[in-house]
Structures are given as structure tokens and as C-alpha cells.
Design a protein around this nucleic acid. Structure first.
Length: 688
DNA sequence: CTAGGGTTAG
């Protein structure tokens, strides 16, 4: 079976034909199957801007055209095809010097025929046919076809120019090949590396291709290793090298390496290059050093949109949204026209700083600039739209992508509308979107809120069958979900199986144990966490630790942890921490200390803190203190019913019914209704 | 062959 493709829309190409034949694929099983199975089942070959061939398992048997004038076109075509073909077959080219040697050792004076033979042989060597498939007759035949076809074209073009021939294949083709397998859609960096290793003296361009490929890969560290090797072997990086290297530094946030690269940029004189310096800015911003980022900004030779936008995004991503907005205003003063990307960052800045007024101004500026995705049906920018959606200035979106769905699900979660979040999840699946890690983070969180046991478990089992099961964020969400559902055992198992445990993972486990009444175990986990030098407890960790202490009544231990939180880790205690401490002390009946702590508090005690104190008063029937607390509470703004109920319970217990009535009056006057308690349990229905 | 974009667990 043979398929001949004619290119008809382009007059010159119309005369050309390429044969794509399939015979060996379907009938012969002797061929290694992976040979014909590239990453995607459909193989797309870009022929020109207007032509694309989509085919399964193509084998090229290029045929030389009879008419000479078409050959140049076909050569170019083949040049475009070669990387695709060679990389599809995972053929390793031979080192250039080896090829050159082949040519030089031939009889230079020979006639045309022997020259042709040499050329043919050269191409075969380059394709490394014997190297990979020597034993297989069918594939040899096949590759002979390939080799012959290629050489046929090459012969016409380069018949008398052996020197050029060598450069042509050594320089251009290998560059194209490396480019193709590092940066095309069907890239394969493992193969790229092998090809690269065949090149004895890679040009800077090829180095750059490799570094770029790795910088966009899963392991950007590889690009840094590549870069180091480049320097060690005495190659001089150029202005293209630095952006790629710096991108890797940014992605993995390697501050020290980034600074070394900065040094190198300065030394090689590319420090004042627009691209390079903008990348430097981003690198410092990614490494959370905004001060250096600002210094770099100052030396950027031209403050264009990208430079400004990078600075804005730096502030946004370092939780300095207000400064980001300031920079944006500055940019407007400098009369630099913002683009959609700029506005995305500014919108995020408004959302993060909860600055609704500026948010409205920004939205109208977006309209003014003509970027508003909701202003007209064309020019719909999903990213900007999602950012606006997240800021809350949009209710409905007609066009959604994965991130939009995720954003909506998490927004519903934050409003506490867990059921709606789950509904949205099923809508999204009906709409044909494949949920990703962020989606699951949201839906698992919704299950945690709802206590949706069965659905939560099904999510868990789904996730464990994917690569997400190793992910720390997913694991943490699951730990929290099981904790909230009441299944501390499952939470524990997931936690133990986590390969990497970060602060959040440890913290969620500690809080889980503390809330399930396993205070000792929670503290044990905390000690294990402290043994791990790679994690530093933060304020939320200490909420768990302190509440664990308070559950088991370890006052001194709690006080020690509180002190080390402040002195060792420099964490400023929040109202929640004081709440824990007051709870700890007043449960133990140590009211003097509790009151002293309250007086020393540098922040205003909130209702929860008073509530904790009242809780202790109830346990120890300390009505006098409760009286004092009542005075504070009545001075405060009206709030939830909790403290009033506590107060009235305390008075009731002491038999002070008048006071009970006064508290109830107070509640009535302040229009506070007692919250209805509710809980839900999911039950399995057993049949027969 | 080069720089900047939305969602994200405790």
C-alpha cells in the first residue's frame, strides 16, 4: 500500500511528489514497535506554512524529480523534513569529523560515480542506519530507500561541493535536528541529548538550543548543568544563552546560581541588554529578592512594557500587591502603554489587596484600552477574563478553559459554597474538560467542608491512580479532608506515604491529630517535624501545636512552644495564638496568668479570645471573672451568639437567673439569634 | 533561537 501525496496548491511543488509508504508497519512484527510509534499517534510534518501532512508512521522514500529546477525546492523540503524523520526513528547522526574523514580518505580524483557513492555512503553514515538496525533486513531495505532518497537530493544540489556538503549536514542539519527535538511539539530531550553528544564541537546556537529545551522541561536543573558544561568546555555564552539560563534559575528559584549568572552577564558585557536584564529582574523576583530586582530595573536600558510588567508581577508574586499597583501608576506616568498581560497582573494585585475601589478603576481602564473581554464578543482574552472573574467583577463567563473552571471552583469554596463547587465540577466534566491537580485541590477541599465521605473517597481513589498521588499538595488536601470527615486513620496513612513533606503537610497532620484528641501524637509529629531541617514551622503550625497542648492540659509545654515560636522563629503571635494560650491557661484554671497575657497582648483581643476565657470560666465556675468579661463583650460590636450562650450558661449554673435574663435581653436587643447547631452524617445504605 | 499572563492544599 502506498500513498503518494501531491502538493497542488503551490505551483512549484505540484511537480514534486513524496511517497509515504506503509507496507512494513502493519504486516511485519519484526520491527521494534516503538520505532513507528512516536509520542503522538498522528505524525505531523510541517512542510511549509501552508502544508501539513498528518499521517501515521510515515516512512520517507523521497523520489528525485526528473526536472532539475525543482530540486532546490525539494532540497529545502527535505531539510525541513529531515529532523522530523530522523528524530522519529531516533537515528543518531555520526560525529561530523567522522563524516569528513570518510570523505577525505576517498580518492579525491575519482570520477562522478565514485563521488556519488561517497555521498551516498556519507548520508548513510550520518543516518547511523547500520548502527541501530543492522540485523534487520526489512528495515535495512527501508532505510536504504530513505538514505538513497536523501542523497539523491543532496547529489543534485551539492555534487561539486563536498566542502559545502559537510557544512550543510554538519552545521545546519544538526542544528535543525537539535532544535527539532528540543523545541518542537514532539520533543524528546533524551534523544536530543544523545544527538548532542554526537557533536564534537557544538556551536553556541546548539548549546543554546539544548539549554532552552531543558529550561522549558520538567527538569530545568539540567539546563543549568548544560550551561556549566558549556563554560567548562570553554564556550562563550551569547546574549541568547542568558535568558534561557535565567529562566531556569527563576523556575527553580535558585538564588545562588542566579547570582553567578548575573556575574557572568556583567563580565561578558551583556548586562545592559534588554532581554538579559529583564530576565535578571524576573530571576531576582522569583527568588524573592525584590530589592535586587529593583536595582536591576534601574539599569534596564529601556523601560518598555515587558520591563514594567515584570516589575509589577514581581511585586504581586511576592505578596506586595500595593506596591505593584504603585508601580503600575508609575508606569502610566511614564506614558508606557500597558498591554493585556500588564493588566492581568494589575487585576490580580487588586484582588489580592482586596482593593475594590482600585479594582473598579482598573476595570474601567481595561475597557478604555479596549481589552475588556466582556466588552465585545471578539477579542476575548480568557486569562484576563479569569483574572477579572477572580477579582469578583464578573459573574458569568461564556467561554471557559480549565483554569477558569478551577478558579470558579476555588472561589465557591472560599465563599463556603462547597456544594456549588462540586456541582461546578460535574458541569465542567460534562463540558468535556479534564480536571487537573488544581481542580482536585478545589474539589477535595469542598468535600472536606461538606464532610462528603463517599465522594471524597472516590476522589482519593481516582487520584491515587494518577501521577498526582505523589504530589504533596494533593496529599495535604486529602489529609485535611479525612481529618475533617473524621477519619484520622486514613489521614495518617496518606501523610506517612507522602514522599515530600512540607510545612503545610506537617501542619495539617498536627492539626488533624490535635482536633481528634490525640494531643500527645500531635506533639510527637511536631518533634519529628523539627528534626527535618528542610521545613520551618510557621504560625499555622503553632496553632496546631498550641491547641494540642491545650487539649491535653500541658500548660508548661504550651508556654515553652509559645516562647520558642516568638523567640526562635520570630513569628508574631496572632489573635488565634492568644486564643489558644488563653484557652490553655483558663482550662487549667490559671486565670491570673490568662488575664496577664490578655493585658500584655499587643493586639486587640477578639471575641474568640474572650470566648476561650469564658469557656474556662464555665469549667471552673468562675462567675466573677465572667462578670468582668461580660463588660468587655458588651462594649464590643455585636457578633455571633457563642459568647452570650456561654455567659448565660455560666450564670445558669451558678443559679443567677436574673443575670441569665439580662444576657438574653442583651442578645435580643442586639438582634443576635442563637445559631442552630447541625451536623450531617453520610450513611451507607445496605441492601438485603 | 531571546523577556512579562489567570486557578492552587494546612
Amino acid at each position: 500500500m502506498q500513498l503518494i501525496l501531491h502538493f497542488q496548491s503551490q505551483p512549484v511543488l505540484a511537480k514534486q511528489s513524496l511517497c509515504f509508504s506503509y507496507p512494513f508497519v502493519k504486516t511485519k512484527t519484526s520491527l521494534p514497535s516503538n520505532l513507528f510509534a512516536p509520542k503522538s499517534p498522528i505524525f505531523t510534518i510541517p512542510l511549509s506554512r501552508y502544508h501539513q501532512i498528518q499521517t501515521h508512521n510515515p516512512i520517507l522514500c523521497a523520489r528525485k524529480n526528473k526536472r532539475r529546477n525543482g530540486s532546490q525546492r525539494l532540497t529545502r523540503l527535505l531539510l525541513q523534513l529531515m529532523p522530523a524523520i530522523v528524530s522519529n526513528f531516533k537515528i543518531l547522526p555520526q560525529p561530523l569529523d567522522l563524516v569528513v574523514e570518510e570523505f577525505c580518505s576517498g580518492d579525491g580524483s575519482g570520477g562522478r560515480k565514485s563521488l556519488l557513492l561517497f555521498l551516498l555512503y556519507g548520508v548513510l553514515v550520518i543516518c547511523g542506519l547500520g548502527l541501530l538496525f543492522g540485523g534487520d533486513v526489512e528495515s535495512n531495505v527501508l532505510f536504504c530507500g530513505l538514505g538513497f532518497g536523501l542523497s539523491g537530493v543532496a547529489m543534485v544540489q551539492w555534487l561539486d561541493k563536498i566542502g559545502i556538503f559537510a557544512i550543510f549536514f554538519g552545521g545546519v542539519l544538526l542544528s535543525r535536528l537539535v532544535d527539532f527535538c528540543t523545541n518542537s511539539e514532539a520533543r524528546d530531550l533524551g534523544y536530543a541529548k544523545k544527538v548532542f553528544q554526537q557533536i564534537s564541537q557544538p556551536s553556541v546556537y546548539i548549546w543554546n538550543s539544548m539549554i532552552r529545551g531543558y529550561s522549558n522541561s520538567e527538569n530545568p536543573v539540567e539546563s543549568l548543568i548544560m550551561y556549566r558544561e558549556m563554560l567548562q568546555r570553554g564556550y562563550l555564552p551569547d546574549n541568547f544563552t542568558f535568558p534561557f539560563v535565567l529562566k531556569s534559575c527563576s523556575v527553580i528559584a535558585d538564588y545562588r546560581y542566579g547570582k553567578c549568572v548575573h556575574n557572568c552577564i556583567v563580565k561578558t558585557g551583556y548586562g545592559l541588554e534588554v532581554y538579559g536584564s529583564t530576565c535578571l529582574l524576573r530571576m531576582y523576583a522569583s527568588c524573592a529578592d525584590m530589592e535586587s530586582a529593583l536595582k536591576v530595573f534601574d539599569i534596564i536600558p529601556k523601560w518598555n512594557v515587558v520591563a514594567w510588567t515584570s516589575l509589577i508581577s514581581g511585586f504581586v508574586n511576592n505578596s506586595r500587591a500595593i506596591e505593584a499597583i504603585k508601580v503600575f501608576k508609575d508606569m502610566e506616568l511614564h506614558n508606557v502603554q500597558p498591554n493585556e498581560i500588564t493588566m492581568v497582573h494589575v487585576v490580580v494585585a487588586c484582588a489580592r489587596s482586596r482593593d475594590i475601589d482600585t479594582g473598579k478603576l482598573v476595570h474601567s481602564r481595561i475597557r478604555q484600552l479596549g481589552f475588556d473581554p466582556f466588552g465585545s464578543s471578539f477579542n476575548f482574552n480568557v486569562v484576563l477574563a479569569t483574572a477579572l472573574l477572580d477579582m469578583g467583577s464578573v459573574q458569568q463567563m461564556a467561554q471557559k478553559n480549565l483554569v477558569t473552571w478551577n478558579s470558579m471552583i476555588s472561589a465557591y469554596n472560599q465563599y463556603g459554597w462547597a456544594e456549588e463547587a462540586i456541582d461546578l465540577f460535574s458541569d465542567m466534566r460534562i463540558a468535556g474538560f479534564v480536571p487537573d491537580q488544581t481542580t482536585f485541590l478545589g474539589v477535595i477541599g469542598a468535600c472536606a467542608q461538606l464532610g462528603a465521605l463517599a465522594f471524597g473517597r472516590s476522589l482519593h481513589s481516582y487520584v491515587s491512580k494518577t501521577s498526582m498521588c505523589k504530589d504533596t499538595t494533593i496529599g495535604t488536601a486529602l489529609v485535611d479532608m479525612y481529618a475533617k470527615i473524621g477519619d484520622a486513620g486514613s489521614a495518617r496513612r496518606i501523610f506517612e506515604n507522602l514522599q515530600k513533606k512540607d510545612v503545610m503537610a506537617w501542619t495539617s497532620m498536627i492539626i488533624c491529630l490535635a482536633t481528634h484528641g490525640h494531643g500527645m501524637e500531635a506533639l510527637h509529629i511536631f518533634r519529628k517535624m523539627q528534626e527535618d531541617a528542610s521545613v520551618i514551622p510557621d504560625q499555622i503550625t503553632y496553632i496546631g501545636v498550641l491547641s494540642a497542648c491545650s487539649h491535653i492540659g500541658l500548660v508548661e509545654e504550651g508556654q515553652r512552644h509559645f516562647a520558642s515560636m516568638v523567640n526562635l522563629y520570630g513569628i508574631k503571635p496572632t489573635a488565634d495564638h492568644y486564643c489558644c494560650m488563653v484557652d490553655l491557661l483558663s482550662r487549667a484554671g490559671r486565670f491570673d496568668e490568662a488575664m496577664r497575657l490578655l493585658e500584655e497582648m499587643p493586639i486587640q483581643p477578639n471575641v474568640a479570645v474572650w470566648g476561650a476565657l469564658l469557656n474556662g470560666c464555665e469549667i471552673h465556675e468562675n462567675v466573677d471573672l465572667a462578670d468582668q468579661v461580660r463588660r468587655y463583650i458588651t462594649e464590643m460590636e455585636p457578633h455571633g451568639s457563642g459568647v452570650y450562650v456561654l455567659l448565660s450558661n455560666i450564670y445558669a449554673r451558678a443559679g443567677r437567673w436574673q443575670e441569665v435574663n439580662r444576657v438574653r435581653e442583651l442578645m435580643k436587643n442586639r438582634n443576635i439569634a442563637k445559631n442552630l447547631g447541625h451536623s450531617s452524617v453520610e450513611m451507607e445504605l445496605l441492601s438485603s
